[in-house]
Every structure is written in C-alpha cells, then in structure tokens.
Nucleic acid binder design. Structure first.
Lengths: 234, 234
DNA sequence: CGCGGCTTTGATGTTCATCAAGTAAAGTGG
DNA sequence: CCACTTTACTTGATGAACATCAAAGCCGCG
C-alpha cells in the first residue's frame, strides 16, 4: 500500500455507495489508486454533462441527481431516450465501443458525477476480469432496460404512453404517488414520440376523469389502478 | 499445454472467424480448452434457438445464418426487436445480467450456433480482463445498434419506416440492391410497429412509383436515392 | 409592464388501423 | 398427385387516432 495513503480517511471512495454496484471486486490498493485519479464534478439543473459527438475521454457515473439522456434526430428535433437516477451509468453504453458520444446527457436536478480517466479505467478493467464482468452485467442491464422501455412505448397508443410515462415517474424515479415533473410537457412528448399538444390534452383528460391531479409541474396519481389499466391496454 | 491436445488440427476454434471478434486475447491453452467445451449446433429455418423465459445456461453465438430476435408483448402479439447476422450475439444482452431470456431468437435461414456452457465462459472471463473488455465493447455495440434502430423507427411515419426497413435489408443484411425478404409481410409489420395491411399497401405504392420491384418475396430497389430520401424525410 | 417561452384548448385535415372480401400460395392428408 | 385446408397476401372502404395549426392564457424575468 502506498505509504502516503496511510491515513485512510483521505479516501472517500472506500465509503462511496457506488462501490457496491460494480466495484465490490476491487482490491484495497486499487481503491486508493482510484481515489487519487477520480474527480467529483457538480452540475446544476439544466447543465450538459455529455454532449453528443464529443470525444469520450472519461469514465463517468452519476453519484447523485437525475439526468436525461437524449439525442438530436435527423430532422433536428430532440428525442429523449431515457431519464435515470444513480447508478445507471452516465457515459453508459458507447463508452467502450465508440470514440464519441452517441447521446447527450443533461442534468434535470443538481447532480454529482464522478469522473475518472477512461485510460485509467481501461487499465483497471484489463487486469481484473471479475470487475469487468460486473461492469458488463451492469451495462447490459441498463441497455436492456432502455430497449424494453422503447419497445413498450412503441406498442402503446397515445393514452397508453402518457399513462406509462406517469407510472414511470411515480414508480421508477420518485417512488411516490405525488411528484414534480422534472421536465417540460414538450420533453415528455419527445420521450414518448408524441406531439406536445396531445400530451397536454391527455393529461387534461386524465384530470377530468379523476385519475390524476395536475397543478403546473406537480402531479398526483389519484387512481393508480385505473392508470395501470390504461397503460396495459393502450 | 495439454498433451492430449498435441495434434492442433483437432481444434477448429483456432481457425474460427469468431476468434477475431472477441477472442483475440485468448491464450492458446484457453482456446484448446474452449474447443473441448464448445458444441456446434445447427438450426433449420424456422427453428427456435432461444425461447423467452427459458433459463440461460449457455453462452451462444451465431456462427452462420440469419436470425430474428423478438418478444411477445403484453397483449400477446409478436414484436420483432431486430434481425441480425453473425457475429452479433445470439444470447446477447441479458446473458450476464438475467437468469432467463428476455427475448426469443429464431432462425430465418439455416443457421449454425456455437454453444459453450455459461459457467465455463464466466470462469474464462473472470480470469481475463482484456477478454471481458472486448466482450463488453461488443455487447455495448450491439445494444447501441438496437437502441438507435428503435429510436429511428420511432420517429418515422409509415412510408419512412417501410423505406427504412428495405434499406436495412439491402445494406445491413444482404449488401445488395436485390434480395429475398427473409420474413413475412406480417413480420416486417411487427418489426416497424405498423399494421400488415399498411406495410403491403406501402410496398405496392413504392412499386407503382417505380422505386422498387416486388415479386413475392423478391425485392429489387430500383431507385435507391429516392428510397433514401423517403427514409430520411418520413 | 411588456416580452418570450411554456401551456392549454379547439378546429381541421392527414395518417393510420381495422374490417371485409377476395386471391394466391403453401401445406396436408387421402 | 390431387383435392382440401390453412395461411399469407392484396386491395378498397371506413372510421378512429393523431399531428398540425391557430389563438389565447399564463408565468417568470428582465
């Protein structure tokens, strides 16, 4: 162990929650090493973390906050791929297969990202198969989730999609029947591939039918089972 | 090296094309070992290679042929996720993160699949970081491809989707302007999330407009640039 | 207090699924 | 190998679902 590092309190990675996600196979000395090479960065709500087309030079993961993964489609408008919390990787997917980001990532809440040089991580992964297998498992989980989400959205109609997205926020993101929508109506529309006007109209319909309460960004699901039925049917 | 294995000709893995995809980091002794543990299986056109919900016990990859990856959606109908050639993994994605297959895979042409016990592969990956990193890179490439394909399909309209799928077959699958559609009209519809009737109608329209020639399963793209324009616009 | 962006609602036309009815092709059993 | 059955394909007609356009209300911010 590095003598300079005798004072273990200097290394906060040791106590990082993320350690349990994929780093459980890391030896202590590697953790200290990682600690020396990592950098924590804070992003304000609205700030861009990764930009589509930029060169990938860092391994990043979301420690705290909420982010939107999106891309600009051929005709220029935005397409939201998914919205996610820690510890789904921020620079997920393409990081080890592409030289540049295929998707942008921006902060929907004030967020903390842990940044490590990609070369450093590659070296670490190269010498530790179990660690890499853990990452692989995690990466494929994340990808699978995005794929099935996209497939789900594709075989629902308008009302089904809106119901789906409301349940997505309530269950996956906030674990609460009441929540503040972290995105605009337009972003919801870009997420479920529908027009903004129709998303709003459908929310109004749900409100009229006593399924939800809407007050600006605040949404309360009042009839969960009905909403779930609509999501299933639609 | 294992003395029994002196005769290197017994090991065909050494010459397998797949070796270059992710196994370039494998030591010679591991290749022989793999050779002893692998099994090649042939599937006839139409046969099922993986069934959604089945327990995953093998690592499989497609050596030869053409396959369809699909799932059954909540309301019972089939949803085609993608169609792919070697060496995109057959038991891709969920293999290291799930216990059971999330998607089915069936053969669209007579296909050859190489099968190795998952436990054996896990052991191999655990002790070889570089190898695992190669797999990780490949897996994320495949996932990325499926994700962007799904996103592309989602922001096109009917004609754009049909044009897209024709170009997909011509470029990605057959590398030819003329090809035999390996799937039914219904399966095309299930792939692009449209109704069968409208897929057929659109093909007829394209034919009427001199963009393609259709004779049963055989399709010839006669006006490539027009088709590409429709795919981009739609 | 006025400007610009986000939201909301209505009206309109387009796009698409669905139904139906008919034809072609591909299996299946005698 | 032919009659029979089933499955795939095709086209038209209809109505439902959805995008688009337009106009007005709201809200935050300079």
């Amino acid at each position: 162990m590095n003598p300079v590092r005798k004072d273990q309190n200097l290394c906060i990675c040791e106590k990082c929650e993320f350690k349990n996600v994929i780093f459980q196979f890391l030896k202590e000395e590697d953790i200290f090493d990682l600690c020396d090479n990592k950098e924590e960065r804070n992003f304000r709500k609205g700030e861009i973390i990764n930009l589509e087309g930029d060169r990938i030079i860092d391994f990043k993961y979301l420690k705290k906050g909420l982010v939107k993964i999106y891309r600009r489609s051929a005709n220029g408008d935005e397409q939201v791929i998914t919205i996610t919390r820690p510890f789904e990787f921020v620079s997920n997917m393409s990081i080890f297969s592409e030289e540049r980001y295929r998707y942008s990532v921006s902060a929907l809440e004030d967020s903390t990202v842990c940044v490590v040089s990609l070369d450093f991580m590659k070296a670490l992964f190269s010498k530790n198969g179990a660690l890499t297998l853990g990452l692989l498992s995690k990466v494929s989980q994340v990808s699978d989730h995005i794929i099935s989400q996209s497939l789900e959205i594709r075989n629902k109609n308008l009302v089904g999609r809106v119901a789906y997205v409301l349940l997505f926020f309530a269950k996956d993101i906030y674990s609460s029947r009441v929540f503040d929508l972290p995105v605009s109506r337009k972003e919801v529309a870009d997420f479920i591939s529908m027009s903004t006007a129709n998303v709003i109209r459908t929310l109004s319909d749900f409100k009229r039918d006593g399924i939800i309460n809407v007050d600006g960004k605040t949404i309360e699901i009042t009839d969960m089972s009905k909403l779930e039925m609509i999501a299933r049917r639609g």
